[in-house]
Design a protein around this nucleic acid. Structure first.
Lengths: 201, 201
DNA sequence: CCGTTTATTGGACAGCCGCGCAACAAAAAT
DNA sequence: ATTTTTGTTGCGCGGCTGTCCAATAAACGG
Protein backbone atom coordinates (compact mmCIF):
# COMPACT_ATOMS: atom_id res chain seq x y z
CA UNK A 1 0.00 0.00 0.00
CA UNK A 2 1.02 3.58 -0.53
CA UNK A 3 3.53 4.85 1.95
CA UNK A 4 2.03 7.50 4.22
CA UNK A 5 3.42 9.95 6.70
CA UNK A 6 3.24 8.63 10.27
CA UNK A 7 0.47 10.95 11.46
CA UNK A 8 -1.64 10.19 8.40
CA UNK A 9 -1.22 6.43 8.76
CA UNK A 10 -2.01 6.61 12.46
CA UNK A 11 -5.18 8.46 11.63
CA UNK A 12 -6.17 5.89 9.02
CA UNK A 13 -5.66 3.09 11.51
CA UNK A 14 -7.99 4.85 13.95
CA UNK A 15 -10.60 5.47 11.25
CA UNK A 16 -10.46 1.87 10.07
CA UNK A 17 -10.71 0.64 13.66
CA UNK A 18 -13.84 2.73 14.24
CA UNK A 19 -15.43 1.44 11.06
CA UNK A 20 -14.90 -2.14 12.19
CA UNK A 21 -15.74 -1.50 15.85
CA UNK A 22 -19.13 -0.11 14.92
CA UNK A 23 -19.90 -3.28 12.98
CA UNK A 24 -18.38 -5.92 15.25
CA UNK A 25 -18.07 -4.26 18.64
CA UNK A 26 -15.06 -2.66 20.24
CA UNK A 27 -13.99 -5.76 22.13
CA UNK A 28 -14.34 -8.02 19.10
CA UNK A 29 -12.26 -5.87 16.76
CA UNK A 30 -9.04 -7.62 15.77
CA UNK A 31 -5.76 -6.53 14.26
CA UNK A 32 -6.54 -8.40 11.05
CA UNK A 33 -9.98 -6.78 10.80
CA UNK A 34 -8.41 -3.34 10.92
CA UNK A 35 -5.69 -4.24 8.44
CA UNK A 36 -8.25 -5.64 6.00
CA UNK A 37 -10.36 -2.50 6.39
CA UNK A 38 -7.32 -0.37 5.52
CA UNK A 39 -6.19 -2.73 2.79
CA UNK A 40 -2.74 -3.17 4.32
CA UNK A 41 -0.85 -5.88 6.15
CA UNK A 42 -1.59 -6.55 9.79
CA UNK A 43 1.99 -6.09 10.95
CA UNK A 44 1.78 -2.41 10.11
CA UNK A 45 -0.52 -1.71 13.02
CA UNK A 46 2.05 -2.73 15.61
CA UNK A 47 4.47 -0.29 14.05
CA UNK A 48 2.25 2.51 15.34
CA UNK A 49 0.65 1.05 18.46
CA UNK A 50 2.30 -1.01 21.16
CA UNK A 51 -0.76 -3.20 21.63
CA UNK A 52 -4.27 -3.74 20.30
CA UNK A 53 -5.68 -2.31 23.54
CA UNK A 54 -4.05 1.01 22.73
CA UNK A 55 -5.52 0.95 19.22
CA UNK A 56 -8.99 0.46 20.67
CA UNK A 57 -8.52 3.11 23.34
CA UNK A 58 -7.19 5.69 20.87
CA UNK A 59 -10.05 4.98 18.48
CA UNK A 60 -12.75 5.25 21.11
CA UNK A 61 -11.12 8.40 22.41
CA UNK A 62 -11.26 10.06 19.02
CA UNK A 63 -14.93 9.19 18.49
CA UNK A 64 -15.97 10.35 21.95
CA UNK A 65 -13.77 13.44 21.96
CA UNK A 66 -15.18 14.49 18.62
CA UNK A 67 -18.74 14.32 19.95
CA UNK A 68 -17.72 16.23 23.05
CA UNK A 69 -16.07 18.98 21.00
CA UNK A 70 -19.18 19.21 18.87
CA UNK A 71 -21.38 19.58 21.94
CA UNK A 72 -19.00 22.17 23.40
CA UNK A 73 -19.29 24.33 20.30
CA UNK A 74 -23.08 24.02 20.33
CA UNK A 75 -23.15 25.03 23.99
CA UNK A 76 -20.81 27.95 23.39
CA UNK A 77 -23.00 29.17 20.54
CA UNK A 78 -26.15 29.21 22.68
CA UNK A 79 -27.11 32.59 24.10
CA UNK A 80 -29.53 31.37 26.76
CA UNK A 81 -28.70 28.68 29.38
CA UNK A 82 -31.89 26.84 28.42
CA UNK A 83 -30.70 26.71 24.81
CA UNK A 84 -27.30 25.52 25.94
CA UNK A 85 -28.97 22.72 27.89
CA UNK A 86 -31.03 21.66 24.89
CA UNK A 87 -27.95 21.82 22.67
CA UNK A 88 -25.93 19.68 25.05
CA UNK A 89 -28.64 17.05 25.28
CA UNK A 90 -29.14 16.95 21.54
CA UNK A 91 -25.40 16.73 21.01
CA UNK A 92 -25.34 13.79 23.38
CA UNK A 93 -28.03 11.84 21.58
CA UNK A 94 -28.03 13.33 18.11
CA UNK A 95 -25.65 10.90 16.49
CA UNK A 96 -27.06 7.88 14.72
CA UNK A 97 -26.34 5.72 17.73
CA UNK A 98 -22.99 4.46 16.49
CA UNK A 99 -21.00 6.37 19.10
CA UNK A 100 -23.42 5.25 21.77
CA UNK A 101 -22.74 1.61 20.94
CA UNK A 102 -19.04 2.37 21.40
CA UNK A 103 -19.75 3.95 24.77
CA UNK A 104 -21.66 0.86 25.80
CA UNK A 105 -18.76 -1.35 24.72
CA UNK A 106 -16.30 0.89 26.54
CA UNK A 107 -18.28 0.86 29.79
CA UNK A 108 -18.61 -2.90 29.58
CA UNK A 109 -14.89 -3.44 28.96
CA UNK A 110 -13.65 -0.65 31.23
CA UNK A 111 -13.25 -2.67 34.41
CA UNK A 112 -11.14 -5.21 32.54
CA UNK A 113 -9.12 -2.98 30.19
CA UNK A 114 -7.27 -0.28 32.17
CA UNK A 115 -6.26 1.70 29.09
CA UNK A 116 -9.87 1.91 27.94
CA UNK A 117 -11.10 2.66 31.45
CA UNK A 118 -8.86 5.69 31.75
CA UNK A 119 -10.19 7.16 28.49
CA UNK A 120 -13.81 6.34 29.21
CA UNK A 121 -13.60 7.76 32.69
CA UNK A 122 -11.88 10.95 31.59
CA UNK A 123 -14.40 11.66 28.83
CA UNK A 124 -17.37 10.83 31.05
CA UNK A 125 -16.10 13.31 33.61
CA UNK A 126 -15.59 15.90 30.86
CA UNK A 127 -19.24 15.55 29.81
CA UNK A 128 -20.30 15.87 33.43
CA UNK A 129 -18.22 18.98 33.92
CA UNK A 130 -19.67 20.56 30.78
CA UNK A 131 -23.18 19.94 32.05
CA UNK A 132 -22.33 21.28 35.51
CA UNK A 133 -21.08 24.49 33.90
CA UNK A 134 -24.28 24.89 31.90
CA UNK A 135 -26.37 24.34 35.02
CA UNK A 136 -24.35 26.80 37.09
CA UNK A 137 -24.71 29.42 34.37
CA UNK A 138 -28.47 28.89 34.41
CA UNK A 139 -28.61 29.15 38.19
CA UNK A 140 -26.59 32.37 38.19
CA UNK A 141 -28.89 33.94 35.66
CA UNK A 142 -31.89 32.83 37.71
CA UNK A 143 -33.35 30.64 34.99
CA UNK A 144 -32.56 27.31 36.65
CA UNK A 145 -33.33 26.25 40.19
CA UNK A 146 -30.78 23.78 41.46
CA UNK A 147 -29.30 23.24 44.90
CA UNK A 148 -26.72 20.68 43.86
CA UNK A 149 -25.47 21.04 40.27
CA UNK A 150 -23.07 18.11 40.60
CA UNK A 151 -25.84 15.72 41.66
CA UNK A 152 -28.29 17.13 39.11
CA UNK A 153 -25.75 16.76 36.32
CA UNK A 154 -25.18 13.10 37.19
CA UNK A 155 -28.92 12.49 37.26
CA UNK A 156 -29.49 14.13 33.89
CA UNK A 157 -26.53 12.34 32.32
CA UNK A 158 -27.78 9.08 33.78
CA UNK A 159 -31.18 9.52 32.20
CA UNK A 160 -29.52 10.24 28.85
CA UNK A 161 -27.28 7.19 29.19
CA UNK A 162 -30.11 4.94 30.32
CA UNK A 163 -32.40 5.95 27.48
CA UNK A 164 -29.67 5.65 24.86
CA UNK A 165 -28.76 2.28 26.29
CA UNK A 166 -32.26 0.91 25.76
CA UNK A 167 -32.31 2.30 22.27
CA UNK A 168 -28.97 0.76 21.28
CA UNK A 169 -29.34 -2.58 23.03
CA UNK A 170 -33.00 -3.35 22.52
CA UNK A 171 -33.98 -1.47 19.41
CA UNK A 172 -37.51 -0.19 19.51
CA UNK A 173 -38.19 -0.83 23.20
CA UNK A 174 -37.75 2.88 23.72
CA UNK A 175 -38.49 4.97 20.66
CA UNK A 176 -35.86 7.59 19.80
CA UNK A 177 -38.44 10.38 19.92
CA UNK A 178 -39.75 9.16 23.28
CA UNK A 179 -36.24 8.95 24.68
CA UNK A 180 -35.54 12.50 23.56
CA UNK A 181 -38.78 13.93 24.94
CA UNK A 182 -38.55 12.01 28.21
CA UNK A 183 -34.97 13.09 28.79
CA UNK A 184 -35.91 16.71 28.19
CA UNK A 185 -38.76 16.36 30.65
CA UNK A 186 -36.39 14.92 33.25
CA UNK A 187 -33.99 17.84 32.84
CA UNK A 188 -36.83 20.36 33.04
CA UNK A 189 -38.09 18.76 36.23
CA UNK A 190 -34.60 18.60 37.69
CA UNK A 191 -33.83 22.26 37.04
CA UNK A 192 -37.23 23.71 37.89
CA UNK A 193 -38.08 24.69 34.34
CA UNK A 194 -41.69 24.96 33.19
CA UNK A 195 -42.47 21.50 31.85
CA UNK A 196 -43.00 21.51 28.14
CA UNK A 197 -46.36 19.78 28.10
CA UNK A 198 -46.43 19.77 24.32
CA UNK A 199 -43.65 17.20 24.17
CA UNK A 200 -45.63 14.82 26.33
CA UNK A 201 -48.59 14.57 23.97
CA UNK B 1 -16.37 -36.35 37.25
CA UNK B 2 -19.38 -37.64 39.12
CA UNK B 3 -22.32 -38.38 36.93
CA UNK B 4 -25.21 -36.01 37.64
CA UNK B 5 -28.84 -35.85 36.68
CA UNK B 6 -29.46 -33.59 33.67
CA UNK B 7 -31.14 -30.77 35.59
CA UNK B 8 -28.39 -30.74 38.21
CA UNK B 9 -25.62 -30.70 35.63
CA UNK B 10 -27.34 -27.97 33.68
CA UNK B 11 -27.54 -25.92 36.83
CA UNK B 12 -23.87 -26.47 37.59
CA UNK B 13 -22.92 -25.32 34.11
CA UNK B 14 -24.89 -22.11 34.63
CA UNK B 15 -23.36 -21.52 38.05
CA UNK B 16 -19.84 -22.12 36.74
CA UNK B 17 -20.52 -19.82 33.78
CA UNK B 18 -21.63 -17.02 36.11
CA UNK B 19 -18.55 -17.44 38.28
CA UNK B 20 -16.32 -17.05 35.23
CA UNK B 21 -18.40 -14.33 33.58
CA UNK B 22 -18.13 -12.12 36.64
CA UNK B 23 -14.34 -12.42 36.52
CA UNK B 24 -13.72 -12.25 32.77
CA UNK B 25 -16.84 -10.69 31.32
CA UNK B 26 -19.81 -12.35 29.69
CA UNK B 27 -18.50 -12.01 26.15
CA UNK B 28 -15.05 -13.32 27.05
CA UNK B 29 -16.26 -16.44 28.81
CA UNK B 30 -15.27 -19.57 26.89
CA UNK B 31 -16.35 -23.21 26.91
CA UNK B 32 -13.00 -24.25 28.32
CA UNK B 33 -13.22 -21.66 31.12
CA UNK B 34 -16.56 -23.06 32.22
CA UNK B 35 -15.37 -26.66 32.02
CA UNK B 36 -12.29 -25.85 34.09
CA UNK B 37 -14.46 -24.05 36.66
CA UNK B 38 -16.67 -27.15 36.95
CA UNK B 39 -13.70 -29.52 36.87
CA UNK B 40 -15.08 -31.46 33.91
CA UNK B 41 -14.29 -31.85 30.25
CA UNK B 42 -15.31 -29.16 27.81
CA UNK B 43 -17.28 -31.47 25.55
CA UNK B 44 -19.84 -31.95 28.30
CA UNK B 45 -21.18 -28.45 27.88
CA UNK B 46 -22.28 -29.06 24.32
CA UNK B 47 -24.26 -32.05 25.54
CA UNK B 48 -26.58 -29.62 27.35
CA UNK B 49 -26.43 -26.48 25.24
CA UNK B 50 -26.53 -26.20 21.47
CA UNK B 51 -24.08 -23.29 21.43
CA UNK B 52 -22.01 -21.12 23.75
CA UNK B 53 -24.38 -18.22 23.09
CA UNK B 54 -27.17 -20.22 24.70
CA UNK B 55 -24.99 -20.96 27.73
CA UNK B 56 -24.32 -17.26 28.18
CA UNK B 57 -27.95 -16.30 27.68
CA UNK B 58 -29.22 -18.92 30.13
CA UNK B 59 -26.65 -17.87 32.72
CA UNK B 60 -27.40 -14.18 32.44
CA UNK B 61 -31.10 -14.95 32.56
CA UNK B 62 -30.76 -16.84 35.83
CA UNK B 63 -28.74 -14.05 37.48
CA UNK B 64 -31.11 -11.31 36.34
CA UNK B 65 -34.29 -13.28 37.00
CA UNK B 66 -33.11 -14.04 40.51
CA UNK B 67 -32.62 -10.35 41.26
CA UNK B 68 -36.01 -9.56 39.76
CA UNK B 69 -37.74 -12.22 41.88
CA UNK B 70 -36.02 -10.86 44.95
CA UNK B 71 -37.21 -7.34 44.19
CA UNK B 72 -40.73 -8.62 43.50
CA UNK B 73 -40.91 -10.23 46.92
CA UNK B 74 -39.61 -7.06 48.59
CA UNK B 75 -42.20 -5.00 46.74
CA UNK B 76 -45.00 -7.42 47.66
CA UNK B 77 -43.98 -7.27 51.31
CA UNK B 78 -44.18 -3.48 51.45
CA UNK B 79 -47.40 -2.06 52.86
CA UNK B 80 -47.02 1.49 51.57
CA UNK B 81 -46.29 2.43 47.93
CA UNK B 82 -43.40 4.61 49.09
CA UNK B 83 -41.87 1.61 50.84
CA UNK B 84 -42.40 -0.50 47.74
CA UNK B 85 -40.57 2.10 45.68
CA UNK B 86 -37.65 2.18 48.10
CA UNK B 87 -37.56 -1.62 48.18
CA UNK B 88 -37.53 -1.84 44.39
CA UNK B 89 -34.71 0.67 44.09
CA UNK B 90 -32.64 -1.03 46.76
CA UNK B 91 -33.28 -4.41 45.17
CA UNK B 92 -32.03 -2.97 41.90
CA UNK B 93 -28.77 -1.66 43.31
CA UNK B 94 -28.29 -3.70 46.46
CA UNK B 95 -26.17 -6.45 45.00
CA UNK B 96 -22.42 -6.14 45.19
CA UNK B 97 -22.29 -4.92 41.62
CA UNK B 98 -21.61 -8.30 40.08
CA UNK B 99 -25.01 -8.57 38.44
CA UNK B 100 -24.71 -5.01 37.23
CA UNK B 101 -21.48 -5.84 35.40
CA UNK B 102 -23.39 -8.68 33.72
CA UNK B 103 -26.15 -6.28 32.70
CA UNK B 104 -23.55 -3.96 31.21
CA UNK B 105 -22.02 -6.85 29.27
CA UNK B 106 -25.45 -7.98 28.11
CA UNK B 107 -26.46 -4.52 26.89
CA UNK B 108 -23.16 -4.18 25.07
CA UNK B 109 -23.46 -7.57 23.37
CA UNK B 110 -27.24 -7.44 22.82
CA UNK B 111 -27.21 -5.90 19.36
CA UNK B 112 -24.80 -8.57 18.16
CA UNK B 113 -26.08 -11.66 19.99
CA UNK B 114 -29.79 -12.20 19.28
CA UNK B 115 -30.22 -14.88 21.95
CA UNK B 116 -28.80 -12.56 24.60
CA UNK B 117 -30.78 -9.61 23.28
CA UNK B 118 -34.07 -11.43 23.72
CA UNK B 119 -33.31 -12.24 27.36
CA UNK B 120 -31.95 -8.81 28.19
CA UNK B 121 -34.90 -7.11 26.57
CA UNK B 122 -37.48 -9.31 28.25
CA UNK B 123 -35.99 -8.81 31.72
CA UNK B 124 -35.56 -5.08 31.23
CA UNK B 125 -39.21 -4.81 30.30
CA UNK B 126 -40.15 -6.90 33.35
CA UNK B 127 -38.32 -4.46 35.63
CA UNK B 128 -40.06 -1.57 33.90
CA UNK B 129 -43.46 -3.18 34.30
CA UNK B 130 -42.82 -3.82 38.00
CA UNK B 131 -41.92 -0.19 38.53
CA UNK B 132 -44.97 0.98 36.56
CA UNK B 133 -47.19 -1.11 38.82
CA UNK B 134 -45.65 0.39 41.95
CA UNK B 135 -46.11 3.88 40.57
CA UNK B 136 -49.73 3.25 39.60
CA UNK B 137 -50.47 1.89 43.05
CA UNK B 138 -48.99 5.03 44.56
CA UNK B 139 -51.00 7.27 42.26
CA UNK B 140 -54.25 5.43 43.08
CA UNK B 141 -53.65 5.82 46.80
CA UNK B 142 -52.90 9.51 46.24
CA UNK B 143 -49.36 9.30 47.56
CA UNK B 144 -47.65 9.75 44.20
CA UNK B 145 -48.26 12.42 41.60
CA UNK B 146 -47.56 11.17 38.12
CA UNK B 147 -49.21 11.92 34.80
CA UNK B 148 -47.32 9.33 32.79
CA UNK B 149 -46.21 6.26 34.79
CA UNK B 150 -44.62 4.62 31.74
CA UNK B 151 -42.40 7.62 31.04
CA UNK B 152 -41.62 8.14 34.73
CA UNK B 153 -40.67 4.49 35.15
CA UNK B 154 -38.25 4.69 32.22
CA UNK B 155 -36.71 7.85 33.66
CA UNK B 156 -36.26 6.34 37.12
CA UNK B 157 -34.85 3.11 35.70
CA UNK B 158 -32.51 5.13 33.50
CA UNK B 159 -31.15 7.02 36.47
CA UNK B 160 -30.57 3.73 38.30
CA UNK B 161 -28.85 2.23 35.26
CA UNK B 162 -26.76 5.31 34.62
CA UNK B 163 -25.54 5.55 38.21
CA UNK B 164 -24.79 1.84 38.45
CA UNK B 165 -22.95 2.08 35.16
CA UNK B 166 -20.57 4.74 36.46
CA UNK B 167 -19.99 2.74 39.59
CA UNK B 168 -19.19 -0.49 37.74
CA UNK B 169 -17.19 0.96 34.86
CA UNK B 170 -15.26 3.74 36.57
CA UNK B 171 -15.03 2.71 40.19
CA UNK B 172 -15.11 5.63 42.58
CA UNK B 173 -16.22 8.28 40.09
CA UNK B 174 -19.65 8.02 41.62
CA UNK B 175 -19.68 6.80 45.20
CA UNK B 176 -22.17 4.02 45.96
CA UNK B 177 -23.82 6.08 48.72
CA UNK B 178 -24.07 9.12 46.42
CA UNK B 179 -25.59 7.00 43.65
CA UNK B 180 -28.17 5.61 46.04
CA UNK B 181 -29.10 8.99 47.51
CA UNK B 182 -29.18 10.74 44.13
CA UNK B 183 -31.37 8.05 42.61
CA UNK B 184 -33.79 8.29 45.51
CA UNK B 185 -33.91 12.06 45.05
CA UNK B 186 -34.66 11.64 41.36
CA UNK B 187 -37.54 9.27 42.09
CA UNK B 188 -38.91 11.61 44.78
CA UNK B 189 -38.81 14.53 42.37
CA UNK B 190 -40.36 12.48 39.60
CA UNK B 191 -43.30 11.29 41.71
CA UNK B 192 -43.94 14.49 43.63
CA UNK B 193 -42.77 13.15 46.98
CA UNK B 194 -41.41 15.46 49.67
CA UNK B 195 -37.67 15.51 49.03
CA UNK B 196 -35.74 13.84 51.78
CA UNK B 197 -33.33 16.68 52.49
CA UNK B 198 -31.45 14.58 55.05
CA UNK B 199 -30.07 12.32 52.34
CA UNK B 200 -28.57 15.28 50.51
CA UNK B 201 -26.33 16.35 53.37
C1' DC C 1 23.69 9.11 -7.48
C1' DC C 2 24.32 6.62 -3.26
C1' DG C 3 23.71 5.52 1.72
C1' DT C 4 20.56 5.86 5.43
C1' DT C 5 16.31 5.81 7.33
C1' DT C 6 11.84 3.98 7.86
C1' DA C 7 7.12 2.67 6.20
C1' DT C 8 5.37 -1.66 4.80
C1' DT C 9 5.11 -6.59 3.92
C1' DG C 10 3.94 -11.36 4.81
C1' DG C 11 4.50 -15.03 7.38
C1' DA C 12 5.98 -17.61 11.74
C1' DC C 13 4.89 -18.39 16.51
C1' DA C 14 2.38 -20.19 20.44
C1' DG C 15 -1.98 -20.30 22.01
C1' DC C 16 -6.88 -19.93 22.10
C1' DC C 17 -11.70 -20.55 20.03
C1' DG C 18 -16.47 -23.25 19.25
C1' DC C 19 -17.89 -27.47 17.92
C1' DG C 20 -18.27 -32.51 16.90
C1' DC C 21 -17.40 -37.30 17.59
C1' DA C 22 -15.85 -42.00 18.81
C1' DA C 23 -14.86 -44.26 22.99
C1' DC C 24 -15.84 -45.17 27.73
C1' DA C 25 -18.48 -45.79 32.06
C1' DA C 26 -22.24 -45.61 35.04
C1' DA C 27 -27.06 -45.87 35.81
C1' DA C 28 -31.49 -47.89 34.42
C1' DA C 29 -34.38 -51.23 32.31
C1' DT C 30 -35.15 -55.71 31.11
C1' DA D 1 -27.29 -60.69 35.33
C1' DT D 2 -27.42 -58.71 30.91
C1' DT D 3 -28.85 -55.32 27.71
C1' DT D 4 -29.95 -50.51 26.80
C1' DT D 5 -29.57 -45.91 27.65
C1' DT D 6 -27.05 -41.88 28.51
C1' DG D 7 -23.76 -38.88 31.18
C1' DT D 8 -18.90 -38.03 30.44
C1' DT D 9 -14.32 -38.03 28.43
C1' DG D 10 -10.49 -36.49 25.63
C1' DC D 11 -8.98 -35.28 21.57
C1' DG D 12 -9.10 -33.58 16.75
C1' DC D 13 -10.70 -30.26 13.31
C1' DG D 14 -10.42 -25.71 10.98
C1' DG D 15 -9.97 -21.27 12.11
C1' DC D 16 -8.98 -17.44 14.72
C1' DT D 17 -6.04 -14.44 18.15
C1' DG D 18 -1.98 -10.80 19.48
C1' DT D 19 2.69 -10.22 18.84
C1' DC D 20 7.09 -10.34 16.72
C1' DC D 21 10.62 -10.10 13.03
C1' DA D 22 13.46 -10.56 8.85
C1' DA D 23 12.93 -8.99 4.24
C1' DT D 24 11.46 -5.44 1.00
C1' DA D 25 10.59 -0.91 -0.93
C1' DA D 26 10.01 3.78 -0.88
C1' DA D 27 11.39 8.34 0.65
C1' DC D 28 15.10 11.30 2.07
C1' DG D 29 19.74 13.52 3.28
C1' DG D 30 24.20 13.72 1.62
Amino acid sequence: MARLRPDQRRQRIIDATLAVAIRKGLGATTVRDVAAEMGTSSGLIHHYFSSMDHVLAASFEQAAQSDLDHARSLVAAASEPADALTALMEGYTSDDGTTMQLWLDAWSEASRRPVLQEVSRRLNLAWHRLLVEVIERGVESGQFTCADPVASAWRILSVLDGMALQSVAHGEVVDHADASAWSAAAAALELGLPTDRASLD
